[in-house]
Write a protein that binds this DNA or RNA. Structure first.
Lengths: 329, 329
DNA sequence: ATGAAAGCGCTAACAT
DNA sequence: ATGTTAGCGCTTTCAT
């Protein structure tokens, strides 16, 4: 059996209360006593059980992170910074991939509550907002990692999607493109990017046709298929603004397949700036999200919430940055 | 306060023992009673605390997964299949990125033991094997996700690195290359790939020079730098076998920088077959690891271990598969 | 400065 | 069929 606090108490000839105090570095006692207990802990290779301490009211020191898919580089990069920041604050994180599936969303939310995570970071567009509101009303700390707060009263951190969409499109228009197709996701973030796309047209005195707006889900394959579909329809855009790098890469592959040169005949802009944007040849022009800053910020907020420090419902928007590489002209 | 088993007991006018039985779907009781309790649970929105039940001896239903870096696509893809398979078996997973850093390895191992994870999946080459052996002797289930078992008595699942190295190199030799550089990692898996590389030379009657063996860590940037260094040394390989996709991509970028055409002047083979291999243009020839199969298998083994079913120290090797795409000739 | 004892929310004998 | 009760390993008053 692994040693318990009783074993340490016996070994060091003190009561468990005293041992508890040295575990938590609290209370008053003779230095010699503290040292004696520490020695005993070392000797027995004692590790306090977090289960037991969680039961007494202290938290589990665990965060729940819900993402659509951890194998998507955007989310894995985000998860990495969240993980690091969490550990800096003594917390671990349990990651669950929801696949945009309402059943999984509900299941994991329930599961993680049973595991008594101290707080949730939700990077997944939730279908069923009421579940999230229920969380809040149960007093469980929650921060959204998407600016999708309609009907939800929780702090959020996100990139400024509208601005990102606006800047990408403006860049394209300024470069002389007039027939720009946007391939968005079914996610909420995309609708703001689409608004930005529209606004850029308006600002430059261009009209943008509804025909030029496509939606799909974030997979390379879907980007490819969508692009081919666009071409088959007889549309001939000179530029494509894809709402994430995955889709952008699919477009590039589709273009290559049918002999369209990027960027000479077709300019492509992605969104996110994941590692994928730097591994294509030519490298992908994309709208970068400050992933590290966002990850750190979201952890800082949830920690503050957990500590009860921060009860405001702040909504933080990070500026996107257009990174021009080789797929636009 | 969230409702406890006592609240449910009171609400349904039974004892907590009865409630416990319906939670665990065990024991005998009138159907009507069971139903009454279930209704009460629903009404109160009761969620059994896993902390409390873990404390009584049932597991935490949580797995610890140690990887070098979750933002590395190979590991995030692996983590995804592990996560799914774990949930199929009622388990969650806490992921920790060790960065090949011995301090982090030790820290997370300790932390997760405190959290009483039911078992460990270690995909990180551990510097300090003794920590792992200590785990085993504490009776904590452990499975390695790398075939790095020297001095370690734990089951493992891995790709057959030797075979992968052999096949990649053989392919290159058969294509007429005689000056093949291998860029490996400092990891153990790489040493088997290097042996495979050597063996292929021998099998084809070629001698392979030690000069042609380089080592670095898995980053695109390192691949690029290493390649440039090779060229600066005046070596002129016609082919490079990189021990993972990240490094391979770095090589391709480096080659492009100095005007070397891939695959015309230089063939490049990667290893892993992550999403990155499919997003380069041309797509990367690489040695594929059956990531999904490996992830599922490793979970199945750890579950068996946890259940005490499987006490053998099996070592599973999955066959790699050379996938020829556009970077070799 | 140190310890005794009452919980925390469950499970699992063991009664009834 | 249902209930009583003794833990599980800790934290935290409250005593001494």
């Amino acid at each position: 059996m692994r040693p318990t606090i009783y074993d340490v108490a016996k070994e060091s000839k003190v009561s468990i209360a005293t041992v508890s105090k040295v575990i938590n570095n609290s209370g008053n006692m003779r230095d010699s006593t503290r040292q004696r207990v520490k020695d005993a802990m070392k000797r027995l290779n004692y590790r306090p059980s977090m289960m037991a301490s969680a039961l007494t009211g202290k938290g589990t020191e665990t965060l729940g992170l819900l993402v659509p898919d951890i194998s998507n580089p955007f989310f894995s990069e985000l998860a990495r910074t969240i993980e690091d920041r969490a550990h800096e604050n003594g917390m671990s994180v349990i990651i669950c991939s929801t696949d945009y599936n309402p059943e999984k969303e509900a299941k994991y939310l329930d599961l993680l509550q049973r595991k008594q995570v101290d707080g949730f970071i939700v990077a997944s567009t939730f279908q069923d907002k009421s579940l999230l509101n229920e969380l809040k009303s149960n007093g469980v700390p929650l921060v959204m990692l998407t600016h999708d707060n309609v009907g939800l009263n929780a702090p959020s951190v996100s990139v400024d999607d509208f601005k990102g969409g606006y800047e990408a499109t403006s860049y394209l228009i300024s470069a002389g493109h007039e027939n720009i197709v946007i391939i968005a996701e079914h996610a909420n973030s995309s609708s703001m990017r689409i608004y930005g796309y529209r606004e850029a047209h308006v600002a430059h005195g261009l009209t943008c046709s509804e025909e030029n707006i496509y939606k799909t889900t974030a997979l390379v394959e879907n980007g490819r298929k969508t692009f081919l579909e666009i071409v088959n329809k007889g549309q001939t855009p000179t530029a494509i603004f894809a709402c994430n790098d995955l889709i952008a890469i699919g477009v590039i592959q589709g273009a290559k397949e049918i002999g369209i040169n990027v960027p000479m005949q077709l300019s492509v802009i992605g969104f996110d700036d994941t590692i994928l944007a730097t591994t294509t040849v030519p490298a992908l022009t994309t709208v970068a999200q400050p992933i590290s800053d966002m990850g750190r910020k979201v952890v800082d907020i949830i920690i503050a919430e957990i500590k009860g420090e921060d009860l405001t419902t702040e909504s933080v928007l990070f500026p996107p940055e257009l990174i021009v590489r080789g797929t636009t002209k």
